[in-house]
């Protein structure tokens, strides 16, 4: 049985996606408007689909047939998009601490430092989002999403607006982590760098799924063209 089976209609667009999270990294690749971001929002619980079921690490997050729909905060899912969405009135450290209020003061402080260090952002702890660059904001957003130790991290083109150096540095730090990731991109070159199981999504349907080489090999020429340009 697939881990994810969702059906959702939004105006003229219909999403019907079935897939498994077969490896630690799953990359959803497809053109703009294919429904990639909608899938992530459904997984996160920010959109209630018309019908479907989502199982994650032995837990059922959604089962419309049984009326099960865990709220976002109980799904153990972190979500980072291109827009860091940091709380502007809080410092970087306070942003990272937002989701771990249940920890003791010392444990919380330790976890915040650990998370910021993980993304090379420990020196930013006392700065507010307005004082951070785009890359620094993404580092803090990732630290915040990972602080509660989520089972799954959803990344919706989180590096799209960053320069190559920042993007590569953040990606290498992410790849070193022991967390299951679903990564969305429409950039074939970016997907190619990931050790991921790939799902190709077109017009709301999964048209191919499997190991990266196998799924994307037919598109290799297009990829090389993209890389050389």
């Amino acid at each position: 049985m697939p881990d994810v089976n969702i059906r959702h209609r939004q105006g003229q667009f219909t999403l019907h996606a079935e897939f498994s999270l077969a490896s630690r990294w799953t990359a959803i690749f497809g053109p703009s408007g294919a429904g990639k971001s909608t899938i992530l929002r459904v997984l996160a619980g920010l959109i209630a689909p018309d019908a479907g079921r989502i199982d994650l690490a032995g837990r059922t997050l959604l089962d419309t047939a049984r009326g099960v729909a865990l709220p976002p905060g109980r799904r153990s899912i972190g979500f980072v998009t291109q827009q860091a969405a940091l709380f502007p009135h809080r410092t970087a450290a306070q942003n990272v601490a937002f989701g771990i209020r249940h920890l003791s003061r010392d444990a919380r402080s330790q976890r915040v430092s650990e998370m910021l260090r993980l993304f090379g952002a420990e020196s930013l702890a006392e700065r507010r989002p307005a004082q951070l660059s785009g890359g620094e904001r993404q580092r803090v957003a990732l630290a915040r999403a990972l602080a509660p130790n989520p089972t799954l991290l959803l990344l919706d083109e989180p590096l799209a607006a960053l320069d190559v150096a920042s993007s590569q540095d953040i990606l290498s730090r992410l790849l070193a982590l022991d967390v299951r990731v679903v990564y969305v991109s429409h950039d074939l070159a970016e997907i190619w760098r990931l050790p991921a199981h790939v799902i190709v999504l077109e017009a709301g349907r999964v048209t191919a799924a499997g190991p990266l080489q196998q799924v994307l090999a037919p598109q290799r020429d297009r990829l090389l063209q993209q890389l050389s340009s």
Partner: peptide, 27 residues
Amino acid sequence: VDAALIEQARLLGAGRWRILRDILLPL
């Protein structure tokens, strides 16, 4: 207030009261 901030707060486990107190009112 940017809806993305409210969504992040919900994802990080904040309930309605905390969203009001810690996000909406200060902003």
